[in-house]
Amino acid sequence: MTAIWSIATPVGDKPATVPSAAPTKRRAGLPLLLLVAWLVVPLVPVVLWSVARGWFFPALLPAEISLAAWARAFANGSDVWRALGTSVGVSAAAAALGMLIGVPAGRALGMHAFPGKRWVEMLVLAPILVPGLGVAMGLHAVMIRLGLTGTAGGVVLVFLVPVLPYVVLISASVFATHDRAFEAQARGLGASSWQTLRHVTLPMVAPGLSVAAAFAFLVAWSQYGLTLLVGGGRVITMPLLLGQSIAAGRNDLAGVAAVLTILPGLAVLVLTSTLLGRGGRR
């Protein structure tokens, strides 16, 4: 179990500050350069298509640059605005709910031994190991019955399945390294349990938990199959809009959708690491 938890920590503990042994720098350089190129190259046509018009083989670059697709995307009432709104709303809601439900469980798993702990751990891990399509298909009938298919609420609810494991596992690893002596000391000095939580516990675990929240948001943001199945075509998130543009054969619109599918996630990453960086320097 601890093995899987350990994968949850890296985003938080910033591997950027790795010490190094200098001598073999050059030999590692070239493969890394190739790796960087490989990581960037697939995004090149994505960006180019968003401003291209009539870009056919064998033209390496678009002959005609056009901002028509971008203009369409930002026109009033465009489906891009709507999908962006849906994506942000649904992902934020799933992340918030996931945190509310999952963090206490993370604390219990990280700090306490209790009967049945193994079962809880297994339940939390299961959604990561069992592909969700079958589960969503099973839930489909109940969701129809409850009037939840095709609604943002239904999608948020189903998103909890992939989101919760990450929230629980990350926060468990945060609390596993959390020293309770400080809380005990605060209580000993006469702080109420609310004061202890507010002034001692939260500041200590906040950086780790913000990573959990960011991760939860990103997991929800990336969902495709579950949204398609439960949303029934009526809940269109950015990934689905991208899929639709591809199905319509409009690479220019798909390019715009793809860029706008990437940017918010990047913003969350930059925001989280900036916040963490500031917290760390203090």
């Binding site: 509310l100 439900i101 999952g102 206490p104 469980a105 604390r107 219990a108 798993l109 306490h112 209790f114 809880v120 339940l123 939390v124 299961a126 959604p127 069992v130 079958g134 589960v135 969503a136 298909m137 099973g138 839930l139 009938a141 109940v142 609810l157 189903v158 909890l160 399945v161 919760l164 494991p165 629980v168």
Partner: peptide, 26 residues
């Protein structure tokens, strides 16, 4: 402790376990 894990167990149990069970039944 039970209060802390109950929401997660309930949500995953209902959505994941329940979904799986309904899938099998289907």
């Amino acid at each position: 402790v039970r209060r802390m894990v109950a929401p997660t167990v309930a949500v995953l149990g209902l959505l994941f376990g329940g979904g799986l069970l309904l899938a099998v039944l289907q």
